[in-house]
C-alpha cells in the first residue's frame, strides 16, 4: 500500500511515471523477442519428444506450465536485470562519481527516497505485468510452432494449455517476478551507490549488478518454487 501512496503523491508522480515508462515500455521490444522464442523453443523441444509417443497436443500444457510457473518470471527477470538493472546501476554509479548523490544528501534529499523508491515502485508494478506479457507471448509462440511445425490445431493447443495450469501457478509466478524486481533494483542501486571514482567504477558497478542479479534471481527463484511446490 505504501507503494500506491508513494506513486500517487504529487512530487513522486512524474518520476514514477518516467520509471514506469523506462522499465516497462522500453523493455517490451526485447522482451517480446525473448518471450516468443522461449515459447517456440519449448514447444519445439517438447513437441519433438512428445511426437514419438503421438502426444504432440500436450505441448500446450508443457509450454504453458513451464512459461507460467518458471520461464515467464525467470526470463523477464533476466532481461530486465540485464537491461533496466544495468541501466539503473550505470546511472546511479555515474551520479555517485559526479557527486550528484552527495549533492542530494547535502540538500537533505534522501537518495533512497528520491532515486530508489520510484524505481522500486515502477519495478513492483511492471515486473508482474511484464511477466504476464511474457507468458502470453510465450504461449502464443508455442501455439505458432505447434500449428506450423507439429500440426497441432490451435483450439486443441489452447484447450490443452489451460488444462493443467492453476491460478496458483500464475500468481506464484507473478509473485516471483515481483521479488525479482526488488532484487534487481536493490542490487543495482547498492552497486551504483558504492561505485568508486571514474568511468571504470561505473563499468564495474554495471557488470557486478548484472552478475549478482542473475545469480540471486536463480537462487531465489529456486527457493520460491520450493516454498510453494513442496
Amino acid at each position: 500500500m505504501w507503494a500506491l501512496r508513494f506513486v500517487l503523491s504529487r512530487r513522486n508522480r512524474r518520476e514514477v511515471l518516467v520509471q514506469l515508462f523506462v522499465t516497462g515500455i522500453k523493455s517490451l521490444g526485447v522482451l517480446s523477442v525473448v518471450a516468443a522464442f522461449i515459447g517456440m523453443i519449448l514447444a519445439l523441444q517438447t513437441g519433438l519428444e512428445l511426437r514419438r509417443y503421438g502426444q504432440e497436443v500436450n505441448i500446450g500444457t508443457a509450454v504453458t506450465v513451464v512459461m507460467v510457473r518458471e520461464m515467464g518470471p525467470f526470463m523477464t527477470g533476466l532481461v530486465i536485470a540485464a537491461s533496466v538493472g544495468a541501466a539503473i546501476a550505470a546511472q546511479m554509479a555515474t551520479m555517485t562519481v559526479s557527486e550528484e548523490i552527495a549533492a542530494l544528501e547535502v540538500m537533505s534529499i534522501d537518495p533512497v527516497r528520491f532515486l530508489v523508491m520510484p524505481r522500486l515502485a515502477a519495478m513492483l508494478v511492471m515486473m508482474p505485468l511484464l511477466t504476464v506479457y511474457t507468458n502470453v507471448l510465450g504461449v502464443l509462440g508455442g501455439a505458432v510452432v505447434g500449428k506450423t511445425q507439429l500440426g497441432v490445431a490451435l483450439p486443441a493447443y489452447f484447450d490443452n494449455a489451460i488444462q493443467f495450469v492453476r491460478n496458483k501457478d500464475l500468481y506464484v509466478g507473478l509473485f516471483k517476478a515481483m521479488v525479482f524486481g526488488v532484487i534487481i533494483v536493490t542490487v543495482a542501486c547498492q552497486q551504483g551507490f558504492q561505485a568508486s571514482e571514474g568511468a571504470v567504477g561505473v563499468g564495474v558497478a554495471t557488470r557486478r549488478t548484472v552478475v549478482i542479479s542473475f545469480l540471486t534471481i536463480l537462487a531465489v527463484g529456486y527457493m520460491i518454487t520450493r516454498l510453494f511446490y513442496t
Binding site: R11, T94, A102, A103, M107, I109, F114
Partner: peptide, 25 residues
C-alpha cells in the same frame, strides 16, 4: 554546496534542477 562538476541531475532541466530543493523541501 557547489560541487566540483556542479553535480546537476542530468535528466532534469536547468529549471527543474534549481526548483528541486524548493519542490522537495
Amino acid at each position: 554546496v557547489l560541487f566540483q562538476g556542479a553535480a546537476l541531475l542530468q535528466w532534469l532541466t536547468v529549471y527543474d534542477n534549481v526548483a528541486l530543493p524548493l519542490r522537495e523541501k
